[in-house]
Design a protein around this nucleic acid. Structure first.
Length: 270
DNA sequence: ACCACAACCTGGCCGC
DNA sequence: TGCGGCCAGGTTGTGG
């Protein structure tokens, strides 16, 4: 399921293919993928626009358009953007296709229909409430401390809260907590400073490692060229109860935090 | 303000 | 082999 490293990889690998390209046609095979505006307006306003920039904010992809607007895409759990040529509509689970002036296209593939797109004049109407970017230099231990201060929810839930820090999801939250040796149910606002420092650096390290490995390919995530990433092969925390902890060998446990499968080592994480 | 949980979806896995 | 039930999780909306 695409989190920050996966979306960053999509951005990086899509950039050279679509930057400067003009949209010549848009096919919506499932109109529900368009969140805003109407499907009809989405098509008519997007066709003819040139892609002038690609950015990522949290787990959102933002395509700047020549008219000043922004095309925003969120892959949610099972989405992928796949670049190609020719019979794009035959791609299994294709929900939308963007055609470009050089004969190429990008398919929004999404088996579970959770993914969404927006076409807006002001991107902040969609991404405005996101917390800081964890890999930017302004995301400091102090910023993290300030944002979780006084919070009673389990730290795992807070890490997955996009308004506290943008881009961390279920998998990388588990990885970061394991690296920082913090139990996922630890009360969020109840940290000693040195533990917060560990957590802060762990968040950045697991995300950077994820990007280096071009994302984790579990569920349906693939890169724009159709190939998987390799980050899941280097996950420190096995995503199966009873598997040995990669650090101490103790069988890892699975609990549910906020309805999400959460894996941790009962010996390493306290 | 904060917290918790259901709903949205459907392919794939598990057990019978 | 086939079938039914259930699991996966990012975000939104609702209710406490």
């Amino acid at each position: 399921m695409p989190e920050l490293p996966e979306v960053e990889t999509v951005k990086n690998e899509l950039s050279p293919l679509v930057l400067g390209r003009k949209v010549t046609n848009v096919t919506l095979l499932w109109e529900g993928i368009v969140r805003q505006p109407s499907a009809t307006d989405f098509r008519s306003r997007l066709i003819g626009q040139k892609i002038t920039g690609i950015n990522r904010r949290g787990k959102y992809l933002l395509f700047s358009l020549s008219n000043g607007g922004t095309l925003i895409a969120h892959l949610k759990m099972s989405g992928a953007l796949i670049a190609g040529r020719g019979n794009a509509q035959e791609v299994r689970f294709a929900r939308a296709v963007l055609y470009f002036d050089d004969g190429s296209n990008v398919v929004f593939r999404d088996p579970r229909k959770f993914g969404r797109m927006w076409l807006v004049n002001d991107a902040s109407s969609v991404v405005g409430k996101l917390g800081p970017e964890p890999l930017e230099t302004d995301f400091t231990t102090q910023v993290l401390a300030q944002r979780i201060k006084g919070r009673k929810a389990p730290i795992k839930a807070l890490l997955c809260d996009q308004s506290i820090v943008a881009g961390v999801g279920n998998l990388y939250a588990d990885e970061a907590l394991f690296l920082a040796r913090i139990h996922p149910l630890t009360e969020g606002g109840n940290f000693f400073e040195y533990r917060l420092k560990h957590l802060h650096s762990a968040i950045r390290r697991v995300l950077q490692k994820g990007i280096k490995n071009k994302g984790a390919s579990i569920e349906n995530y693939v890169r724009p060229d159709g190939n998987p990433g390799t980050a899941h092969l280097e996950f420190l925390m096995p995503r199966k109860a009873g598997e040995p902890c990669t650090r101490c060998g103790t069988p890892v446990e699975r609990i549910t935090v906020r309805g999400r499968g959460t894996y941790f080592c009962p010996k390493c994480q306290v």
